[in-house]
């Protein structure tokens, strides 16, 4: 058996595969299939590629419906459940608020500007079925950033398992999906970055199955009029979120862990902690006062 570590970039973040590949399998083929699967998601769902499905959907906003495939339809159904479970905080249409809140702003936006921005968002305004989707207003856009990277990790893990890989992990920008424990049976040690540090880990989690995702608001933020604002905008109020700085969650699927950790950061501190408690998944959350909460050590 060969242990293979392959690093690449996809979906705007550093990615890593660690696989124990049995001798009888073609190592290059396994790795290239996994990387290709990650790139497939980038091709399809990246906002930054004008040819992607998402860009075509966004370009047709207010104009016409676009055909979608079963995978996209299933992802949309999943994000609907996230929208409902989070009482509207997790909203894939909230991306258009970037026009209201962005880097290099000199002054805070007026309430009027915010209100106008809010008219262009709202998951419940989307019109979609199993084979097409229509964004009814010009300026509306979909942003799968909170869900596709995590789903891609699950998809790559499933692909690797179907090729015969039983030990390994997939790490897409800090969202880790375990294919199976290490070859000798020991769990994978995964570090959670200290949001207030300089890249060191604040916790080490041992995982032999399932997924661990970390959502954080510490890497990107705005400075406006002397105050720091999170890049995460609350889609109900239109204002940046003031809440937890980082949340790490363990669940069986990466997409589920990712949704839970994302939603935790979209609420205020108390709401985020209450959400994590109600999900009953192991979590580690750090608030603005550098206090750690949660069931993970």
């Amino acid at each position: 058996m060969n242990t293979v570590t392959n690093q690449f970039r996809a979906m705007g973040c550093p990615c890593e595969l660690r696989l124990f590949i049995p001798d009888k399998l073609n190592q290059e083929k396994v790795v290239s299939c996994c990387v290709a699967e990650a790139l497939r998601f980038e091709e399809k769902y990246s906002r930054y590629r004008p040819s992607s499905l998402v860009s075509r959907i966004n370009a047709a906003a207010g104009v016409k419906a676009i055909d979608i495939d079963p995978e996209t339809s299933a992802i949309l159904d999943y994000t609907r459940v996230c929208f409902e479970q989070s009482d509207g905080l997790f909203d894939i249409t909230a991306g258009s608020l970037r026009s209201v809140w962005h880097q290099n702003m000199k002054t805070l936006p007026s309430q009027e500007v915010i209100e106008r921005g809010l008219t262009k968002i709202g998951f419940d305004k989307l019109i979609f079925s199993t084979d097409s989707i229509f964004l009814p207003f010009t300026g509306m856009e979909l942003d799968f950033g909170g869900v596709v990277k995590e789903y891609a990790a699950d998809a790559i893990a499933t692909l690797a398992k179907s090729m015969g890989i039983q030990h390994g992990l997939v790490n897409l920008g800090g969202d880790v999906c375990v294919i199976g424990a290490q070859q000798d049976g020991t769990a994978w040690p995964i570090g959670v970055i200290d949001p207030f540090g300089h890249g060191e880990a604040i916790a080490r989690i041992e995982l032999s199955e399932g997924a661990l995702t970390t959502s954080g608001s510490y890497e990107r933020f705005f400075q406006v009029e002397g105050k720091t604002y999170s890049h995460l905008i609350n889609p109900l109020t239109g204002w940046p979120v003031e809440g937890l700085v980082s949340a790490s969650v363990i669940a069986e699927q990466t997409i589920v862990a990712g949704s839970i950790s994302s939603i935790a950061l979209l609420a205020d501190t108390a709401g985020g902690l209450a959400w994590l408690q109600s999900c009953q998944a192991p979590y580690l959350a750090i608030d603005q006062n550098k206090v750690c909460h949660g069931t993970l050590k």
């Binding site: 079963p70 995978e71 299933a74 992802i75 159904d77 999943y78 996230c82 998809a155 997409i255």
Partner: peptide, 8 residues
């Protein structure tokens, strides 16, 4: 909800 996704 995740169960209806093709990879799971």
């Amino acid at each position: 909800a995740a169960l209806s996704l093709p990879a799971i």
